[in-house]
Nucleic acid binder design. Structure first.
Length: 737
DNA sequence: GGTTTTCACGTTACG
DNA sequence: CGTGAAAACC
């Protein structure tokens, strides 16, 4: 561990102040690229060094596991092994630990299961059935978001009703009540509960609160602009005794209000903590002067912000490139051409480049272009591993083994694979157990009867239906017995085979059976670390971990060369030498759904700001003249955010067709092509030529046709690659004699 | 009760 | 256009 002077070495005056300020509340407003992670970690090291405080009495909260991991790594580098004693985790993980340990005093069972957002949606739908609400009239999605919003604001159903202003609010309240009852019956906690129940625990068990208040002498919260009210309350509670609360954030990068992040938390921090010191980290070490200036003018229009004059000592850098493509395919092609040029004629490689977009659907055109031109890419996001159907199904079985009262998991697998318990039976069963006032699991037990009297007949089900359900109960019980005597990976195998799930999947003639089996294999693979503990114990640890750590397949850790495709939301916190922002059009950025509300519009602007400030050297802002939206093509106007960028920072674009700030004009498709390669050049290949390609291997030219100043080459490759259509200027095809 | 067809719908996604 | 979930069909 270096001494305190060494820790301060290399910090600018503002950073220094943020590190040195020890006692009392501290607000650090950290602009993009201002080195805030560095400041937090150095602050922790400095604290330990100068005050002699034990590292285990410091708590640093982050929003993503990625950030927590990064912080732990950095701490380890500065502090050495004692860094491990610092609590660096997410609010949710912290709360899950507190609840397992101390939750019993407010009636949280220690074997609770965590409900993710998919489970929440299922639970809302079932709650709507119970409350007799028509999903057509009230979209479950909007009810879920209302309920989640209430919960994240620590409002109970009763409190919600008290504030109800409209009939819709009453509807929400009705669902909310049912939803809470369902969760309680199921012994489930959703992500909002993890926070809210912990807040409740602190409120109702002062001794527990005191325990954590005493333990954590210092609390740090990163990305404070993204906290919701529950998290704010928790931070306030934990720091309640020593008042050493240090929050770090940037209101201009708040892009998660739709997830209940409350900008007021950071904007009014000084009001809530009048003695708070404020440090402005306004020097950017990331972007060029040009990029920073452009981003600043874009964000300056917003009103909900803390004034900040970002500056940098970096070079002026290259102008920002704005360009208009004809449509989304053309846009993708332009991006790839430029990426290719940067990689070939400048110092950049594929992994230095990123393409960012507003909505996931935009990735499609980019992916297709990458495949076509043979550019390796990596798509961040999409359907996450634990969201895939087969993985969710398997987890539901596992969860039932841990918590047989989990109704959501039960509903998921009761007839998966089909075992003769269809909708009718299930509905009847639901009604019957409700009427009897017993949990569903107990319902099965009643049907099975007891050992002495054999199967019960005191129920409204036919013999075949009852038998199906008794069989299911026996399946579960059998698996629970197994769980006692085998490890987790084997238990998963056992679940998949004894339930008939795997067999049913293999019989199906779906096209993606292979892939789904592969996913199940992978699931089994991730349980390997739990193999050396008893299955039930491992199961609980695994289920908690899989809920809490939905691993963002390790962004940036790979050495391989890939072009990164990512949404503007997910790109936050990352930086790249070269950033392409595509779809800079009205309706996309800002998105249609956000255009008529000034608050939401400000958030869209922040999204643009976040995207722009990811770039270190080069920034490209692209748009398409017309774009396919929901099936049909429509022209789109240039995004209003483009207009804010000062013209002197902009270069007139990629290739000849690029227009700065073009009015929408009638665009002639034939004129939209670049002229790097004159059209009258002789074709590079003729049909029958043998060629070789770096990744596809040997192949034979099928055809070679002029396409927009370039040549589209169709090649039949040997082996698995098959027939590919490639663009001559991209694909490095060598003629083989 | 299980399978096929039709229909409606469509932003962003951390834990 | 592509996808998931309800409705119609076997």
């Amino acid at each position: 561990m270096p001494d305190s002077d060494a820790i301060l070495l290399g910090l600018n005056p503002a950073q220094r102040k943020a590190v040195e300020h020890i006692d009392g509340p501290l607000l650090i407003v950290a602009g993009p690229g201002s080195g805030k992670t560095r400041v937090i970690t150095h602050r922790i090291a400095y604290l330990v060094q100068t005050t002699g405080l034990s590292p285990r009495r410091i708590c640093a909260v982050t929003f993503t596991n990625r950030a927590a991991k990064e912080m732990r790594n950095r701490l380890e580098r500065i502090m050495g092994p004692q860094a491990q004693q610092v609590t660096a985790s997410t609010f949710h993980a912290l709360c899950a630990t507190i609840l397992r340990r101390d939750g019993e005093s407010i009636g949280i069972p220690s074997d609770y299961v965590i409900f993710d957002d998919g489970d929440q949606m299922d639970a809302i739908k079932r709650s709507m059935e119970a409350a007799e609400l028509d999903p057509k009239r009230y979209p479950p999605r909007s009810l879920l978001s209302a309920v989640s919003s209430a919960k994240s604001q620590l409002m109970s159903p009763e409190a919600y009703l008290a504030h109800a202003k409209s009939y819709y609010d009453e509807v929400v309240q009705r669902v909310y009540v049912e939803y809470e009852a369902l969760l309680r019956r199921s012994q489930g906690l959703d992500f909002d509960d993890l926070l809210a129940k912990t807040a409740k625990l602190f409120k109702e068990a002062p001794d527990v609160k005191a325990k954590y208040q005493d333990r954590f002498v210092h609390l740090m919260v990163d990305e404070f602009q993204d906290t919701n009210m529950a998290q704010y309350q928790l931070a306030k509670d934990i720091a309640g005794k020593f008042q050493n609360i240090c929050v770090v954030g940037d209101p201009d990068q708040s892009i998660y209000s739709w997830r209940n992040a409350d900008l007021r938390n950071i904007l009014s921090f000084q009001k809530d903590y009048p003695t708070a010191q404020v440090v402005n980290l306004d020097q950017s070490y990331r972007s060029t002067k040009t990029i920073l200036q452009a981003a600043r003018t874009v964000i300056a229009v917003n009103t909900q912000r803390l004034e900040q004059e970002l500056w940098t000592d970096n070079e002026q850098g290259e102008p920002i490139v704005m360009a208009e493509a004809y449509n989304e395919e053309d846009e993708a092609q332009e991006v790839l051409k430029e990426v290719d040029r940067l990689c070939r004629t400048e110092k950049y490689s594929l992994r230095d480049c990123v393409v960012a977009y507003r909505i996931n659907a935009q990735s499609r055109a980019l992916e297709e272009a990458c495949l076509r031109y043979g550019i390796p890419y990596r798509l961040i996001g999409g359907v996450r591993f634990y969201q895939r159907r087969e993985v969710k199904d398997a987890l539901a079985y596992l969860r039932l083994l841990q918590d047989p009262y989990d109704e959501i998991s039960l509903a998921r697998v009761i007839n998966e694979p089909p075992r003769g318990i269809g909708k009718k039976t299930w509905d009847d069963f639901t009604r019957w157990t409700k009427q009897q006032g017993i949990p569903m699991y107990a319902g099965f037990q009643v049907l099975a009867g007891d050992d002495e009297h054999g199967p019960s007949t005191d129920h409204p089900f036919g013999a075949r239906q009852a038998q199906s359900m008794v069989d299911f109960l026996q399946l579960l019980n059998g698996l629970r017995t197994d769980a006692a005597e085998m490890d987790l990976p084997h238990l998963i195998d056992e679940v998949l085979s004894r339930s008939g799930y795997r067999a049913h999947m293999m019989e199906s003639d779906d096209t993606d059976v292979e892939e789904r089996l592969e996913n199940l294999k992978e699931l089994r693979g991730v349980t390997a670390p739990y193999a050396d503990m008893p299955a039930l114990e491992g199961l609980q640890a695994f289920l908690e971990n899989s809920a809490l750590v939905q691993d963002q397949d390790a962004i940036g850790e790979e050495e391989q060369q890939y072009l990164t495709l990512i949404t503007l939301h997910q790109i936050k916190g990352l930086e790249f030498p070269v950033v392409f922002m595509v779809g800079m059009e009205e309706g996309l950025l800002p998105h249609t759904r956000s255009m008529d509300d000034p608050t939401q519009l400000e958030e869209e602007r922040r999204l643009a700001y976040v995207g722009m400030t990811r770039a270190k050297d080069r920034l490209y802002l692209l748009r398409a003249f017309r774009r396919r939206v929901l099936g049909n093509t429509a022209p789109g106007a240039p995004s209003r955010f483009l207009n804010a960028v000062p013209l002197h920072l902009v270069s007139p674009g990629i290739g000849v067709k690029a227009k700065v700030r073009a009015e929408p004009v009638v665009y002639d498709r034939r004129k939209t092509t670049n002229v790097d390669i004159p059209v009258n050049v002789a074709p590079p290949f003729k049909a029958g030529d043998k060629v070789s390609h770096g990744s596809f291997g040997q192949g034979i030219i099928v055809s070679c046709n002029p396409a927009g100043g370039d040549f589209e080459v169709t090649v039949a490759f040997l082996g698995e690659s098959g027939v590919k259509r490639l663009l001559h200027s991209f694909a490095k095809l060598d003629k083989v004699s």
